Amino acid sequence: MPEQKIAVEVDGRRLTLSNLDKVLYPAEGFTKREVLDYYRRVAPAILPHLAGRASTFLRYPDGVDGQQFYEKDVSRHAPDWVRTARLVNSGSRGGSEVNHHPVIADLPTLIWAANLAALELHVPQWTVGSRGARHNPDRLVFDLDPGPPATVVECCRVADRLREVLAEDGLTAYPKTSGSKGLQVYCAVRTRQPERTSEYARAVAESLASESPGEVVARMTKAVRPGKVFIDWSQNNPAKTTVAPYSLRGREHPTVSTPVTWAEVRNCTSVADLTFTAAEVPDRVDRLGDLFGGLTGQRMTLPRSR
């Protein structure tokens, strides 16, 4: 069947959309048209968390049951109006490569990305300047990953304790689901040293693991993780990214990495309590607003030590 294309205008930009009826989530019959509509509806909430950040796409051109791939460099196919950040990235074999990362600051760029079947949008904990310079981290993240049979329910118990620890250090914490198995906790921070967020996060994670060794682990070793919550502090490494708030996930169903309230965290008793899909999130945002909005406001200085 020939590729179906239509031309549209989005906020003054001409876009060519393709294969809108292609099913990207077979378990629900969820199509690319519905993916595009989801990102259109959630744009006011997601764009502030993408703007100024060098994005990495996780693309699923044949849907979530097909092959997927990460894309950092869009220089070969991005329209000339898409802003990109030219960044040198360290290669896995010790070398380096230059990538032109997309910087998603407006609705046309967001829709362009969605049309590429970039279901997942990943961003670092730092922004880039107008000339592409990397700024120091402005976000601190703790990625809570449950080792089966633990679930997001156990993550919630750990997250609430983590919130208390961060509050003692003068930091305001914001939780969101990963859209997969776990939970993530963020803070808006200010630091002059890029490595400080990783150092601080590691100290907090190891402190909680020492406090509750039967429930929490701060080491990545898989053998020590069953039944416990792994606090992945390493996601603060400037070379790493985390899934953006309100991003879809490439799972069986169109789940979304969704900001939640601390009341929802404390009241969580089942996985279903903190599972949100593309069908639910836009209305949830209309009702609750952007629960991650505080992250774009005042940043607090990281404690010098812990």
Rank of each mutant, 00 (worst) to 15 (best):
V185N: 05
L119M: 04
V23G: 11
R266K: 13
R59N: 10
H135G: 14
G63A: 06
H101T: 11
V82E: 00
E211S: 12
F292K: 02
N236L: 09
A45T: 09
D106I: 05
V35R: 03
E252K: 15
R306E: 04
A150V: 05
M1C: 05
V189Q: 00
V88E: 13
S270Y: 02
L47N: 09
C155M: 12
V185L: 10
R139S: 10
N115F: 09
R266E: 12
P137M: 05
N99G: 02
V153I: 13
W126V: 01
L107W: 07
S75A: 15
P194V: 07
T301R: 08
E71P: 01
I104F: 03
A205H: 10
A54L: 07
Y70F: 15
E211A: 15
E252S: 13
E28D: 15
S198W: 01
N267R: 13
S257D: 03
A188V: 02
S212P: 00
V8E: 09
L274R: 04
R225F: 01
F57K: 08
A150S: 13
R163G: 02
H101N: 15
A7I: 08
R163S: 05
P226H: 11
P26H: 04
G52L: 02
A167W: 07
T127H: 04
N237T: 08
M300D: 14
E199C: 02
R249K: 14
C187W: 01
L119N: 04
R306A: 12
S75Y: 08
P44A: 09
A133M: 06
G170P: 07
G63S: 08
V23P: 11
R266D: 08
T109R: 03
R86W: 03
P238M: 10
W262A: 10
T301K: 00
T127D: 05
D232I: 03
R33I: 01
R225Q: 15
E206F: 13
Y25S: 01
A223Y: 05
V152N: 02
Q68R: 13
N237A: 13
R192G: 15
T242M: 09
L144C: 03
T241N: 01
R219D: 14
D160R: 14
R14F: 03
L144P: 02
C268S: 10
E34T: 05
R40T: 13
L107Q: 11
Q4V: 12
E215S: 13
P175T: 12
G297E: 15
R33Y: 03
E28L: 14
P124E: 01
P226S: 08
T16W: 05
D290M: 07
T31Q: 05
H101A: 02
R93V: 04
P48L: 07
V128L: 09
